[in-house]
């Protein structure tokens, strides 16, 4: 199974990066939004809490297009049946989940330095900041991969994905914004409970998604 998951992830990367449509849109969105906020604030000092909100809002909405694309592309290009015939539902789910996690991490690597520079974020606790970024990314992709699979079976895919994902990821955004604020504000104590919550949230959603995915995929 590991071999088929790796083969499937390799295939998704090849398909995505030869087209680069979704990634390019996400990166362009991140650049435009970050620069817009930077110009709009015009050098005014922004409180760390607001910086954290901006950072996660930019990350969340930039990633939305790429995270849903992994499933909607299969339906739009009629490759979903090809995939169904040649891969088990479990393989498809795990490979798409890992692919989405990798894409989110890739976007974080581009967007975080951009935001740190343009929004003048000072990272006080770099280890806690990095772990929050990783845990938040894993939690968001864990929650949204199954939603992408559901949405890909319907019409109005792109917009529906963001709308459906928002309430599910709201607790994650709430916790990650708070944890990020603490890691970029001097004098505040970082709470590891936030990371624990993100880990538990990811685990619970992953288990439920893994069990439900074959029903969604096989009946789609």
């Amino acid at each position: 199974m590991v071999q088929t998951i790796l083969s499937s992830i390799r295939k998704d990367f090849r398909v995505e990066f030869r087209g680069r449509y979704a990634i390019n849109v996400s990166v362009a969105f991140a650049f435009i939004t970050t620069l817009s906020i930077s110009f709009a604030t015009g050098g005014t000092a922004i409180r760390p809490a607001i910086q954290a909100i901006f950072l996660w809002v930019i990350l969340f909405f930039s990633a939305m297009n790429s995270l849903s694309h992994v499933f909607t592309r299969e339906e739009e290009e009629s490759t979903a049946l090809f995939l169904r015939l040649h891969s088990s539902a479990e393989t498809v789910f795990l490979s798409k989940l890992l692919y989405n996690m990798a894409v989110f991490m890739f976007l974080e690597m581009l967007i975080v330095p951009l935001c740190v520079f343009f929004l003048s974020i000072t990272v006080i606790q770099p280890v806690q900041f990095t772990i929050t970024m990783l845990a938040g990314g894993i939690a968001i992709t864990s929650a949204t991969t199954i939603i992408a699979a559901i949405v890909s079976q319907s019409g109005g895919r792109g917009s529906l994905f963001t709308i459906l994902s928002f309430p599910v990821t709201l607790p994650v955004l709430w916790v990650t914004i708070d944890a990020t604020t603490r890691s970029i504000t001097s004098g505040l104590i970082f709470s590891w409970n936030s990371v624990l919550f993100l880990g538990a949230f990811s685990m619970a959603l992953l288990i439920v998604s893994y069990l439900l995915f074959p029903v969604i995929w096989d009946e789609g």
């Binding site: 088929t4 083969s7 295939k11 090849r14 398909v15 030869r18 290009e77 049946l81 090809f82």
Partner: peptide
């Protein structure tokens, strides 16, 4: 073989075959 089943357009024939028969 069906009009509704398409191989991946971005991949080559060989890459499609390797993916389809990965096990």
């Amino acid at each position: 073989v069906s009009p509704d089943i398409m191989p991946y357009r971005e991949l080559t024939a060989i890459e499609n075959i390797r993916f389809a028969f990965n096990t």
